[in-house]
Nucleic acid binder design. Sequence first.
DNA 1: CTGAAAGCGCTAACAG
DNA 2: CTGTTAGCGCTTTCAG
Lengths: 340, 340
Amino acid sequence: MVDSRDVARFAGVSQTTVSRVLSNSPKVKPETRDRVMRALAETGYSRNAVARAMRTRRTGTIGVVVTRITNPFYPEFIQVLSQHLDRLELRMTLWDAEGPGESNAVEAIRQGIVDGVIFTTALQDSAALREALQRRAPVVLVNRTVQGLQCDQVTSENHRAGHMIADYLLRAGHRRIGLLAGPPEASTASEREAGFRGRLAESGLLLHPEFIRVGDFTHEHGHESVRAWFGTGSRGPTAVFCVNDLIALGALDGARARGVRVPEDLWVVGHDDIQMSSWEAFDLTTVRQPIGDMVETALRMLLARIERPDKVPEFCRFPSELVVRGSTAHHPAQRALSAS
Amino acid sequence: MVDSRDVARFAGVSQTTVSRVLSNSPKVKPETRDRVMRALAETGYSRNAVARAMRTRRTGTIGVVVTRITNPFYPEFIQVLSQHLDRLELRMTLWDAEGPGESNAVEAIRQGIVDGVIFTTALQDSAALREALQRRAPVVLVNRTVQGLQCDQVTSENHRAGHMIADYLLRAGHRRIGLLAGPPEASTASEREAGFRGRLAESGLLLHPEFIRVGDFTHEHGHESVRAWFGTGSRGPTAVFCVNDLIALGALDGARARGVRVPEDLWVVGHDDIQMSSWEAFDLTTVRQPIGDMVETALRMLLARIERPDKVPEFCRFPSELVVRGSTAHHPAQRALSAS
DNA sequence: CTGAAAGCGCTAACAG
DNA sequence: CTGTTAGCGCTTTCAG
């Protein structure tokens, strides 16, 4: 493998000059630059990124941690992020951490393998995360946040989303309402749930304990829950809020399995507006977050923090909007009438 | 940041000895090792992976290139790979390359950023790939392969899958058969198509040109195609083979949009058996590949090639199996009767 | 069993 | 504008 010293010899300059040309230093005589450029091309030189990283203490790679990459939300997230990184000539090291796998990523920062990490699936009690922040490791939380953590964080209006959905269901006349909750340590789940229950409570509605089920962010959770509600002879809720779309898709499938008609017998609402939610098979009413903006902001924050580790942490919450589709009646008024 | 020199000072040994302890060298007196271990713990040392990589010329990171991470097939792939890598204490740098983005990954090998690359979405005519191989860059192709390329490759019986499906449809009495093909440069698409058409031809069946549509591996392709076939008043095929599941899910949704009943009016068959295919909403008949084995084999090949760049390339093709579900009649005999 | 010394390929003062 | 020099933190001979 040819190194910059070889190129220098070839061009008849010092190795330093080659390095200068490579980093577009303005103080190289055009003539010399040309000669070096030619030498670069003719020798087929490629810069050794590891040696470079060793000197500069920057790898040009950032870490991304997700918890279950098969949840379609994360591929959508990664796709957007990937486009930004390409543009910036940066790279992404991905960890799909089942359980508290943040430690791998945190350790990678310490080892200088990545310049910083974006966590998409932080939990409230992550020790690894707290320790990393104490060490001023460049870290950004996006999607799931952690209350009171001195850390850059980006999310959307989860609490308000819960409000919107509660209002929407109440206004349509629903009283037998179900909730498919997520892990309470996940801020997305707990905030959406709190917003939802809070608004219902304000309207004097207390959810029937049977109609609240806690589970993972999985299709199975939605599927099993709805099947349980509508088991032989039992009377389930008339509407259900699932704290994310994957659960909601499971709920729709559970309804299908039981012959429960959506939206006639059951309204289903999710959160995230993943691409699949708009497919005919589901046509899911859900809440859309501005994922592009969220990713862009998180990345910007991370890069800024890598530059200035002592920067004061930002917290950014993006607005989200209800997207009404066929899994709830398109015209709430109709439902309100028939339910009253 | 504390380095191994600091640890050495702390433990009262040479920096070399610290390095030896870190790499589990057997020739360190247990007593000394203990002392170093304690120093390691007390100083909170983390090995600088970049300096290490510079010396050893190994980063412990492998690259993975996919073409559209939102195709659920790839997350499933990555999930399995990720587990293996964790176990081996390796990492993954991911490129989601829309178009011919292999060049980023190939360049990363040259720059020493990754030790090797797994390509999941190679195309027949990738110049970057050919060039990389010429340079003996450690590269493995999995899923999509390239005919005649001197390179480790792993795939499944795509051609036979086409056969199986053709046989299955013919035996059920179908004559008006559709094909939703993929990009011809993708071996998976072209092999499945060739197998399918070949077997139909052997049975004297020539596909109606209208019933063959070429597109990307997208939901939209399937969706649009079926909608076009079953537009107002037109008579579509009675069965369709989609070269992957994502297209098939689109086809199912297109059928739904047109009020075409599956399987009564239309049989739909896919390929890959992604998790979603088994969901009630789709219940898709498809072909399952042993994805775990494929990933494991590809990784093994890559690691072997990193060790021995001149190893003779292996080509590995795994068996796959037809998984019959509700998108085709569960009892082919019934259909055969009603169609005859 | 342990240490001294060399150097991976690059960038960044510093000197001219 | 260009070159000399000094490391970045580690692994790895080579001596002892």
